[in-house]
């Protein structure tokens, strides 16, 4: 089935007819990418924020045919994601996200490692977040289910000032297993990032001092 993507970002060319059977390969590529983030030494000299707090709009293309629907559902909502960076290039991110449509909604909470790669005024990042997702389906006898969620994705921030940057895009492959079915979903997010603290180049992990 050909599905037209409703959202496009300047840096992402959307390809409509790729089969989801390729997702294992895709995941491998993304893991490779994350490893690259970890192993390649950042060449840029700018600081990485110690703490980032992202809040913004998100759109999820939800795999609702697994619920018996005739086509995927477009859900609109929010994404709130704080992150604490331990060293240059690596930190821990969490997210609370909610997306809503006419017949169903989706809320998730997840946490996991984040990988960073600065370049000039831009900061590329990737993450693997694992957590829980809850869905309410408002069809007939309303049904609700909670199950695990895995978000595999990344994006790009662009500095606006010393405190703020704009999240130009964040794209996540969101894997869920609601109602004993498997869903392969795609989520786009954009918004503002507030940040403070800085990790200088060559900085090591912080130590706790009394």
């Amino acid at each position: 089935m050909t599905v037209h993507q409703p959202v496009a970002t300047p840096l992402v060319h959307l390809k409509a007819d790729v089969q989801l059977a390729r997702i294992p390969g895709m995941a491998a590529t993304l893991l490779l990418l994350l490893l690259t983030f970890c192993t390649v030494r950042p060449a840029a000299a700018q600081d990485i924020p110690r703490v980032q707090v992202f809040a913004g709009y998100s759109y999820t293309r939800f795999d609702s045919p697994s619920f018996g629907f005739s086509k995927p559902s477009g859900l609109n909502g929010y994404n709130f994601s704080p992150a604490f960076n331990l060293i240059r290039g690596f930190g821990v991110a969490a997210e609370v996200s909610g997306q809503y449509g006419s017949n169903l909604n989706l809320r998730d909470i997840a946490v996991g490692p984040q990988f960073l790669y600065p370049k000039g005024k831009t900061l590329f990042f990737g993450h693997v977040l694992i957590g829980s997702v809850r869905s309410l389906v408002r069809v007939g006898n309303n049904e609700e289910d909670t199950d695990r969620a895995v978000a595999l994705g990344g994006g790009m921030d662009f500095d606006l000032s010393s405190r703020f940057s704009v999240r130009v895009f964040q794209v996540d492959y969101l894997h869920t297993s609601l109602f004993s079915e498997t869903q392969n979903n795609l989520r786009f997010s954009t918004g503002l990032v507030y940040r403070w603290g800085a990790i200088k180049k060559g900085h090591r992990a912080p130590t706790l001092t009394p």
Binding site: H4, V12, P65, L152, G155, Y173, L186
Partner: peptide, 13 residues
């Protein structure tokens, strides 16, 4: 990788 992700999400599972 992001392009790949975007392309994949457009299909049902």
């Amino acid at each position: 990788a992001l392009t790949w992700l975007a392309g994949c999400g457009g299909n049902s599972s």
